[in-house]
Amino acid sequence: MRTRVFLLLLIAVAIVVFFATRWVNNDYVFFAGYTVLQFVVLSTAWNILGGYTGYVNFGSAAFFALGAYATVFLHKLYPLPIPLLIVVGGAVSGIVGLGMGYLTLRLRGAFFAIATLALAVVLQTLIVNWDYVGGSRGAYIIRPNEIALIGPYIQYLFLVMLALVVIALTVARGIERSRLGYGFATIRDDELAAEASGVPTLRLKLIATTLSGALMGMAGAPFPYYIGYLQPSSAFGLEYAVNSIAMPMIGGTTSWVGPLIGAILLGSLQQIATVTISSAVNLLIVGLLLVAFVIIAPNGIVGLVQGWIRRTK
């Protein structure tokens, strides 16, 4: 199985990344690295729906926040280990994705996009009005300082996110190489012709929304532990919605490599820039890059590189 080889390779890379970061031995690198990895998961998840099937999800922040608030909710009931919380967060977001898809995907593609855009506003309204999870005031999650075997808790969170990256990339690449990947591509290209070729388009679209939503929820589940104090405005932050679209668009949407490149480039850039310039300027740059790339380089950095290779050959 080539997917198995890929998975092993990815795990090897992840282990190297983890120990290299540990060798640097600076907490800030773990904090910044966590955010970049989180964006890798988010943009890969977005791309499974957006890049492969061509359906745009503007509500990444909502799916992410659902995962985060599932954790807050469970944390109040009974403290669970993070891997379990990830499963729950993924399930919640996946189900919401499925429901939204079921209601809107039988219609024109634009309706789904609009509905996801509105979803973020509505979920935020719900959370703000829900006192149990902190309402508009927010909720504190006390994070342990240390964890057995690994040491500092942030290193544990970093490792967890690294594992999610491995999962997300393996799923994305697995889809590309499978029957599902061909099916997704036909939906992106021409749904009528896809149906006529025997592709069950609605079912495939629902699979894509569910998978994509679930991965976003999984990325959000450890977030309360990372940030320590979760407010609706930080969980539903604009940067999630924008980055999870901008990163694949800038990296390239046709394969798993694009979102990875886009997330690492833009994510690191923002981590560096937040230290030097304000976060608003930061987001402005991302927005402008997004607009510029969709107009000038529709296939992103991957497309530019492919074009360059083709020309020099």
């Binding site: 957006g50 061509g54 745009v56 503007f58 593609g109 634009a110 996009a113 992106r188 604009l238 924008v242 679209i245 901008a246 668009m249 949407t253 608003a280 987001l283 402005l284 927005g287 402008l288 997004l290 607009v291 969709v294 107009i295 529709p298």
Partner: peptide, 19 residues
């Protein structure tokens, strides 16, 4: 390319104007 990139374009405009 209206569906994917056109939508993203408008989303970018929305976002850039707000920021």
């Amino acid at each position: 390319q209206e569906s994917l990139r056109g939508l993203s374009f408008f989303f970018g405009l929305l976002f850039v104007t707000e920021v």
